[in-house]
Every structure is written in structure tokens, then in C-alpha cells.
Amino acid sequence: MNTLTFRITEEDVEQYADVSFDYNPIHLDLEEAKQRGFTNKIAHGMLTVAKVLSILSNELLEPQVMLHKYEFTFLSPVYVGDQVTLIFTQTEQAIRIEGKCDKKLVIRGHVLLQE
């Protein structure tokens, strides 16, 4: 089991919006996010996944290993400024991943590597 962390910054979210053209206001507009019931602007789900897989590849795998399949469930919002703690567990078939902000589970999933 390995534990690693990353933080989602406002700049990350703004840059991801520019890269993906996903300008959903819950990511970029605090008032709009609050109107939708969130306490802050939230990170794009795919930004969080991209960060998770980048950390997995760089910290735990060889650079050239292909991630054949991945699946994640977004359990709670990841807010701008949040630090996400990742727990990676290697099983026979997959790498299982849980991400927590403080003690709250925000993302859970698994990755299968190329055979």
C-alpha cells in the first residue's frame, strides 16, 4: 500500500477549463457553485482523474507502462484548494485507488495495466 498526496489549485481548474473547453460554472464561478449547493468551486472530475493517474504513473510505475483501463466513481466534490490523499493498493488484477480530502472519501476506482 502506498500513500501520496496532491493539491487542486485554482490555476489547475482554470487551465483545465481552457484545455478541455469545459466551462461549467460550478468549476469557475464561486457564486454559481454556491447556488448549486457547493461550498466552493469544484474541480472537474477528469482533472482529478488526470492528476491521480499522473501520480500513479510517475511514482509507482515505469514511464512506458500503458494504463489499459481505468474506472473511477466521484463520491464527493473535490474543491479548489483541497489536498487529496491517495491510497494505492496493488491486487492481482488491478491497482485500487481511494482518494480522501481530510477523512472524507471523494474518489474511488481502479486501474488495469496493459497485459
Binding site: 469545459d22 460550478i26 477528469m46 488526470a50 500503458m66 481505468y70 466521484f74
Partner: peptide, 29 residues
């Protein structure tokens, strides 16, 4: 990078519009 193909959405126009608030619940690739 493994998640990058998903940004292809920016070049694809969908004839349907999902109304806000739009929440991403799960992703498999």
C-alpha cells in the same frame, strides 16, 4: 497521456444539450 483522449469533446458538437447543473458521477475509460 491516459486521460487526454477525453478532451476530444471540445472538438465534437453534440446535437443534445445536458442542462446545468451537470454532475460527473462516474468515468470509465
Amino acid at each position: 497521456p491516459p486521460t487526454m483522449p477525453m478532451i476530444a469533446y471540445k472538438w465534437i458538437e453534440t446535437p443534445w444539450k445536458l442542462q446545468h447543473p451537470l454532475i460527473h458521477r462516474k468515468q470509465q475509460c
